[in-house]
Amino acid sequence: MMVIRPIRQSDYLALLSIAEESGHGFTSLPVNEALLKAKISRSERAFKSSNETLENDCYLFVMVDTETDEVVGTSGIESTVGLRDPFYHYHQGKVTHYSNELNVYNTVDILTLGNDYTGATEICTLFLSKKARHGTNGRLLSRFRFLFMGQNKNRFSDTVVAEMRGVSDEFGQSPFWAWLQEHFFSMPFPDAVHRVGMGQKSFIAELMPKYPIYASLLSAEAQAVIGQVHEQTKPALALLEQEGFCNRGYVDIFDAGPTVEAKLDDILTVKNRQEYSVCIGELEGGKEYIISNLEVADYRATVATLSVNVEKSAVMLNTELASILKVSEGGKVSIIALR
């Protein structure tokens, strides 16, 4: 069984392994001991905090295989972005050039640098190890976050965003960045991504073009990947779209991957989750659900086949599942149908 829990310091080596496996373009997991350990410490502080207000917090979770006690994935939530470090995006827009005298009318696409998502909550750092990419694992690793957020709305913003990894090749080269590198920067794409992961963002403000970029001036290869996602990211994007996330024209400044957004209360899992009382007994046949306790520091979530009594607002758990979820008879759990 796969179980979601908050990360802890003893997970450092597992997180490092995930960071190494994630490869190029995954800015939220730099392969750096000091930064990874700092991220774990920051997450531990957030989970232990009793202050149920919107702060600059990071909630980082891991997925654990209960049979082997091996960490096979990670998933995170930044409660707010852009308040301490700039949160840059390009916004896709249009301008029209028209000459009455010549009777020439042209509409062109432009990219405008901005910080429009400052203060939003970001879901991030989702990565599932290749050996665990099967069954319901990907769906659990993505959707449980919305159960957690729905149970703790005061800790998160009304707007939730997710940056999707853009197109790059097996060597970490991005067609979009190649054009920016040629004209404005003098560093390879992996180096730029690594700098951002290390928190070194000042070079963006210093070197990034301040005025709108005419998309037609980009190379054909760069234009083709604007708003497109990395092959490995397509399943994650599909899950978010099912939850109600959509792209409003914002793309990443490095690889032009899309940023999708949703209002917290409009996210499908947040809207449809139900809280039920726990009854301890023998599990009977039923539907598959994502189920979690209502804790913060001791948060647990998993997928299980459950029998739910809607009239009594009760759900039956056997002793093993109740123990995994850290709940007892009469306690409360949050559930959402897996499909």
Rank of each mutant, 00 (worst) to 15 (best):
A178H: 06
A215V: 15
L237P: 03
M208N: 09
G23K: 04
D65E: 11
V108E: 12
M149E: 01
K210L: 05
A256C: 06
V308G: 10
G197F: 04
I253V: 05
F189D: 04
I280R: 11
D252V: 03
S186R: 10
G76T: 09
L239C: 01
K201Y: 10
V62N: 02
N318K: 01
N106T: 14
P212R: 03
E284N: 04
G257W: 04
I123A: 04
V108Q: 14
L36A: 03
S99Y: 05
S129I: 06
Y98T: 03
M63E: 06
E33L: 06
V333E: 00
P209Y: 02
L126S: 11
S43V: 01
S129M: 12
G249F: 12
E295I: 10
H89R: 14
P190R: 05
Y211N: 00
S41F: 09
H97M: 15
E44S: 10
S216Y: 12
A304S: 12
N56W: 12
P258L: 08
G249S: 08
M2N: 08
F171G: 14
V167R: 01
G172C: 09
A215Y: 00
V327Y: 06
I290F: 10
L54W: 07
N32T: 08
G135V: 11
I110E: 05
V3E: 11
L111T: 08
H89W: 14
V81S: 08
Y105Q: 11
S129T: 12
E243Q: 13
A220C: 07
F146Y: 06
G135N: 08
G244N: 09
N309F: 12
K271I: 09
N152F: 05
E295M: 14
E241G: 04
R5A: 04
D11K: 01
F26R: 04
T136I: 14
K210Y: 00
K326Y: 09
Y276N: 14
